[in-house]
Deep mutational scan, measured.
Amino acid sequence: TYYTVKSGDTANKIAAQYGVSVANLRSWNGISGDLIFVGQKLIVKKG
């Protein structure tokens, strides 16, 4: 599943929404920190 980042989103918020850990969200998308951008497409695997 892909999720498009919206204004006000955070890695924590997206992870919680899908029931996954922030560490997994980072791993699936090659993100090292919490910096995400509006319009960015993230791979999300439901927990």
Rank of each mutant, 00 (worst) to 15 (best):
S27F: 12
A23C: 11
S32F: 11
N29F: 03
T4G: 03
K41Q: 12
K41G: 05
N29K: 00
Q40R: 06
N12H: 14
F37D: 07
G19Y: 06
S7F: 14
N29C: 02
Q17F: 13
G33Q: 08
Q17T: 10
D34R: 07
V5I: 05
T4Y: 12
V20I: 15
I36S: 02
T4M: 09
S21Q: 06
Y2G: 04
I43T: 06
N12K: 14
S21G: 05
D34Q: 08
A23V: 10
G30V: 07
G30E: 10
A15R: 02
S32V: 15
K41D: 06
A11Q: 11
L25K: 00
I14T: 01
S27L: 15
R26I: 14
S21E: 07
S7E: 15
I31D: 04
I36R: 00
S32T: 14
F37N: 08
N24K: 10
G8H: 06
N12F: 14
G39I: 04
V38A: 09
I36K: 02
V44W: 02
K6I: 09
G47M: 12
L42S: 01
G30L: 08
D9E: 03
Y2V: 09
F37T: 10
S7N: 11
Y18W: 14
S21H: 06
K45P: 07
K6M: 10
F37L: 09
T1M: 13
S27Q: 13
T1F: 14
G47A: 13
G47Y: 12
K45A: 13
Y18V: 08
I43C: 09
A16T: 10
N29Y: 02
L42F: 03
Y2R: 06
G30I: 06
S7C: 14
I31E: 05
V20F: 04
V44E: 01
V5A: 07
R26K: 13
T4K: 07
N24A: 12
N29D: 01
A11W: 15
G39F: 05
G33D: 12
S32R: 11
K46D: 11
D34T: 08
Y3I: 08
A11I: 15
V44S: 01
I14G: 00
A16N: 10
Q40I: 06
I36E: 02
S27K: 14
Q40K: 05
A11N: 04
W28G: 01
S7Y: 14
I36A: 03
A23Q: 12
L35M: 13
V22N: 03
D34A: 07
S27D: 14
G47E: 13
A15C: 07
R26P: 00
T10E: 05
I43W: 10
Q40H: 05
K13L: 10
S21V: 04
S27R: 13
F37E: 10
I14L: 05
G33V: 09
A23E: 15
Y18A: 07
A16E: 13
I36Y: 05
G39V: 03
I31M: 12
A11G: 04
A23I: 09
G39E: 02
L35R: 12
K41V: 15
V20E: 05
R26T: 10
T10K: 04
V5Q: 00
V5S: 03
D34L: 08
Q17G: 06
L25H: 00
K13Y: 09
R26Y: 14
A23W: 07
G39Q: 02
N12A: 15
L35G: 11
I31G: 05
Y18R: 02
F37K: 10
S21N: 07
I31W: 07
Y2C: 13
L42E: 00
V38L: 08
T10Q: 04
D9S: 01
L42I: 09
S21I: 05
N29H: 01
K41I: 15
S7K: 13
T10C: 06
W28F: 04
Q17P: 00
I14E: 00
S21T: 13
G8A: 05
I14M: 01
A23M: 08
G19I: 04
A15E: 02
K46F: 14
S21Y: 04
W28Q: 03
A15L: 03
